[in-house]
Simulated assay, not measured.
Amino acid sequence: MLIDSGVNLRIVQTNHIFFFFFFFFFFCGQNSKIVLFFFFVDQDELLWAAAWLHRATDDKSYLDYLGQAGNTGGARTEFSWDDKFVGAQVLVAKAEQFICSCIQKGNSNVKKTPGGLLWFLPFNNLQYTTTATLIATVYSEYLSPKRASIQCSGGIVQSSALLDLARSQVDYILGSNPNGMSYMVGFGSKYPTQVHHRGASIVSIKKDPSPVACQAGFDAWFNMNAPNPNVLDGAIVGGPNDSDGYTDSRSNFQMAEAATVNTAPLVGVLAKLA
């Protein structure tokens, strides 16, 4: 494998790294802007990188780095694009506290809606639900062949219970919920029709080739109280509030915005459950 462990370890051992990412040209009318993007790599990403590099190379130096890290995240309340500690913890089998809180057997449990959905935050909650579901699925796979279990403060958790949790969340997302609505666009007979997504909410150029200016997109399409002209098949929206309520309106971006971070974790879960 073409991986230089010496170089990679020096990168991982750097506490904070700034990456210049790219120039992005955005044109709107006669004005153009150059936007500089920087990625700030913090401790969670360094630990996650070390965990993956150890798995890829079996180089003990990466494992040593993980063992010597002063901050391994502790008990986390979410796993997301902005907080990857749980991802690193899962790779080294130390994510029990997060899992216990998701399965309602921890000291500080994740909130659940009356309909049973894991509920973390008002803005795009399903991104956190799908990542938590992936963690439960992966940890179930880790425990099952060992016939092992997790000792939570609220009791023992078997691998089968983690898989049951994953199934319950997938079932909810796909329509087994108080609204009878699938939050995966295009799946089932009832799903969000006003997804907060520019490409889905503006008519195809094949049907209307006339140009759409920046502001015209808002005036003619964003504010139109009608289903999107294009169905964004497979996209998962932000989802309902903590009372299972959902407003199907593209202006309600907290609930209606679709994102790859919502859908991607569910791919792994469905691969297991299919």
Rank of each mutant, 00 (worst) to 15 (best):
I3Q: 00
I3G: 01
D4N: 09
D4E: 05
S5M: 00
G6R: 05
V7S: 09
L9E: 02
L9A: 00
Q13M: 11
N15A: 08
F19C: 04
F20W: 09
F21W: 11
F24I: 15
F24S: 11
F27A: 13
F27L: 15
G29T: 06
S32Q: 15
K33I: 14
F38V: 13
F40M: 08
V41G: 07
V41I: 15
E45S: 10
A49S: 11
A51I: 06
L53G: 05
A56M: 09
A56V: 13
Y65P: 00
Y65D: 00
L66R: 06
L66I: 08
G67P: 12
N71S: 10
N71C: 09
T72N: 10
G73A: 06
A75F: 08
E78S: 10
F79V: 02
F79H: 06
F79D: 03
S80P: 02
D83M: 10
F85A: 00
G87L: 01
A88T: 06
A88H: 11
V90L: 12
V92P: 13
A93N: 15
K94A: 13
A95M: 08
I99A: 03
C102K: 03
K105D: 04
V110H: 04
P114L: 00
F120Q: 06
F120W: 03
P122N: 12
N124Q: 13
N125C: 06
L126F: 08
Y128I: 05
T129G: 02
T129S: 04
T130L: 01
A132S: 04
I135G: 00
A136S: 05
T137W: 01
T137D: 00
T137G: 02
S144A: 11
P145I: 08
I150Y: 02
Q151R: 14
C152A: 03
G155H: 12
I156D: 01
V157P: 08
Q158F: 15
L163I: 13
L165Y: 06
R167S: 07
R167Q: 10
S168K: 06
Q169A: 01
P178F: 00
N179I: 08
S182E: 07
M184R: 02
F187S: 02
S189T: 14
Y191G: 01
P192R: 05
Q194V: 07
H196P: 04
R198L: 14
A200G: 14
V203Q: 10
S204A: 14
S204Q: 08
I205P: 03
V212T: 12
V212P: 11
V212S: 07
G217H: 05
F222T: 12
N223V: 15
M224S: 13
A226M: 11
A226P: 07
N228V: 05
N228Q: 03
V231Y: 12
D233E: 14
D233L: 14
G234L: 05
I236G: 00
G239L: 02
D244V: 13
Y246A: 04
T247H: 10
D248H: 04
S249N: 12
R250Q: 04
R250M: 02
S251E: 14
F253E: 01
Q254M: 12
M255S: 11
E257Q: 13
E257P: 04
A259G: 03
A259L: 11
N262E: 12
N262T: 08
L266C: 05
G268S: 05
A271L: 15
A274G: 15
